[in-house]
């Protein structure tokens, strides 16, 4: 099992604070910030960030989780607007994890989204395949013990046709992976799992909405606030992580997405265009492609 040693206070505190306060911080005010985080986020020296006890942070996290929708809520809303033909949007599963722990973390998040997609499609075989890949990535990150019980439960629930139960298990699994990574004091990876999951969720959503059969094009972005949340999480990554080429690529494109789907446009009742939807999908597609290699 590979473990990366890292300075605990700056990275953990900054990333954990970003992760744990994200929904509250971005949703609690009148609106999420219009502008994406700059390359150098505006925050004080890392020594100014208090290293709060993890238990305290975990409590905050539990309270805030409900502010973030589950991927299934989003997929359910899309399914009300059109026939999404979920299986059409499967991505090929690549057995070999991508190079580097950050991309392994992001790919694990994407696989969680892939699991929700397979559940929407009620595809038991696909779920087994995705579950095997989740297990593989989790092992790389030292989380195999955390995911095994959930995946076993998923197998049983899917066999019983309890797809709602499967969704709940995967939602809980996502939070447990994030908590597990924070316990390992790897806040970057906890953020990247979350980012990877939601990028893939929006990748699927923008693909479906991009077919032009959905009246509310803003569904492509998951609604007001979500692109800003993703960009906010990305802004919470450590400087070392953000300096990596593929992560920097993700930051640039997620910043553009935040501008396209800014809260001001939502508040102003602006009509989004199909071109913006397709551009969104293309950008996310490019990010996913980079993070998957």
């Amino acid at each position: 099992m590979r473990r990366r040693l890292q300075p605990a206070t700056p990275r953990l505190a900054a990333a954990a604070l970003a992760l744990l306060s994200a929904p509250g911080a971005l949703y609690a005010g009148a609106a999420p910030p219009a502008e994406p985080p700059a390359a150098e986020p505006e925050r004080g020296p890392v020594t100014d960030v208090p290293d709060l006890p993890e238990g305290h942070l975990a409590v905050i996290a539990e309270r805030e989780k409900i502010s973030l929708p589950s991927p299934v809520e989003y997929f359910t809303a899309i399914a009300k607007a059109t026939n999404p033909r979920w299986r059409k949007w499967y991505l090929e599963l690549v057995p070999d994890p991508p190079a580097g722990r950050p991309k392994v973390g992001a790919s694990l998040g994407m696989l969680l989204a892939e699991a929700h997609l397979a559940t929407m499609a009620r595809d038991g075989q696909r779920l087994r395949n995705v579950g095997a890949e989740i297990s593989s990535r989790a092992k790389v990150l030292g989380l195999e013990d955390a995911v095994a019980p959930r995946l076993a439960a998923v197998e049983t629930l899917a066999g019983e046709g309890n797809w709602g139960g499967v969704h709940v298990e995967f939602e809980a699994l996502g939070w447990e992976i994030g908590s597990g990574l924070l316990r390992q004091r790897d806040g970057d990876l906890a953020l990247l799992v979350l980012i990877g999951q939601w990028l893939r969720v929006l990748h699927i959503g923008s693909a479906v909405v991009g077919l032009g059969e959905v009246g509310d094009l803003s569904l492509a972005a998951g609604g007001e606030g979500l692109p800003g949340l993703v960009a906010g999480w990305a802004g919470g990554l450590s400087e070392e992580c953000r300096a990596q080429e593929d992560i920097a690529f993700m930051l640039r494109h997620s910043a553009k997405l935040t501008r396209t789907w800014s809260p001001e446009k939502f508040a102003g009742g602006r009509e989004f265009t199909l071109d913006e939807v397709k551009d969104t999908h293309s950008r996310i597609d490019a990010i996913i492609s980079r993070l998957s290699k």
């Binding site: 539990e62 309270r63 989780k65 409900i66 973030l68 589950s70 709602g164 709940v168 939602e171």
Partner: peptide, 8 residues
């Protein structure tokens, strides 16, 4: 469908 998340 249920949420795994819960606010207390």
């Amino acid at each position: 469908s249920q949420r795994a998340a819960l606010w207390e």
